[in-house]
Amino acid sequence: KKIKIKIKVYNPETKEVLELEIEVSEEEAEELAKKLAEELEKKGYKIEEVEI
């Protein structure tokens, strides 16, 4: 079964909002969402919402 992940991120420095969407297997979904959120935060983005 495929799971659709939508991530909306906001960069306070540039006032930019990015929306990302990807489909992955159920097993990958939670781990991938967690890794993406961590990487984006390292780059200065503030995570507003992660929906699985």
Rank of each mutant, 00 (worst) to 15 (best):
K1M: 08
K1G: 12
K1A: 05
K1W: 07
K1E: 07
K2A: 05
K2C: 15
K2P: 10
K2Q: 10
K2E: 07
K2F: 02
K2I: 12
K4W: 11
K4Q: 07
I5Y: 02
I5Q: 00
I5V: 08
I5M: 04
K6T: 03
K6F: 04
K6A: 03
K6E: 02
K6G: 02
I7H: 00
I7D: 00
K8H: 04
K8A: 02
K8W: 04
K8N: 03
V9D: 00
V9F: 14
V9N: 00
V9L: 12
V9P: 00
V9Q: 01
Y10G: 04
Y10T: 09
Y10C: 13
N11Y: 05
N11E: 03
N11H: 12
N11F: 06
P12V: 06
P12S: 12
P12Q: 15
P12I: 13
P12F: 07
E13D: 12
T14V: 05
T14Y: 04
K15V: 03
K15C: 15
K15G: 13
E16P: 01
E16H: 09
E16G: 08
E16D: 05
V17H: 08
V17F: 06
V17L: 02
V17S: 11
V17Q: 13
V17M: 11
V17G: 06
L18W: 05
L18V: 04
L18S: 12
E19D: 10
E19S: 12
E19L: 11
E19N: 10
L20Y: 13
L20A: 03
E21T: 11
E21D: 04
E21K: 09
I22K: 06
I22T: 10
E23H: 12
V24E: 08
V24F: 03
V24N: 02
V24Q: 02
V24P: 02
V24M: 01
S25H: 14
S25K: 05
S25E: 15
S25D: 10
S25Y: 15
S25V: 15
S25G: 06
E26A: 13
E26G: 05
E26F: 09
E26N: 06
E26W: 07
E27M: 10
E27L: 04
E27R: 09
E27G: 10
E27W: 05
E28P: 03
E28C: 14
A29R: 03
A29I: 02
A29C: 12
A29N: 02
E30S: 12
E30Q: 15
E30A: 11
E30G: 11
E31L: 11
E31I: 08
E31T: 13
L32V: 12
L32Y: 09
L32T: 15
A33D: 02
A33R: 05
A33M: 09
K34M: 09
K34Q: 14
K34A: 07
K34G: 04
K35V: 12
K35A: 06
K35D: 05
L36S: 02
L36M: 11
L36F: 13
L36P: 00
A37L: 11
A37T: 13
E38K: 05
E39P: 00
E39Q: 09
E39K: 04
E39R: 03
E39W: 06
E39F: 08
L40V: 02
L40H: 02
L40K: 00
L40E: 01
L40R: 00
L40N: 02
E41F: 06
E41S: 13
E41Q: 15
E41M: 11
E41H: 06
E41C: 11
K42S: 12
K42H: 04
K42N: 08
K43W: 08
G44S: 01
G44K: 00
G44R: 00
Y45H: 03
Y45L: 06
Y45N: 02
Y45D: 01
Y45G: 01
Y45T: 00
Y45C: 13
K46P: 01
K46T: 08
K46A: 08
K46R: 02
K46I: 13
I47N: 01
I47E: 00
I47F: 02
I47H: 01
I47A: 02
I47L: 05
E48C: 15
E48A: 03
E49T: 12
E49R: 09
E49K: 05
V50F: 05
V50A: 02
V50T: 07
V50K: 01
V50H: 02
E51H: 12
E51P: 01
E51V: 15
E51M: 11
E51F: 13
E51Q: 08
I52C: 14
I52H: 03
I52E: 02
I52N: 02
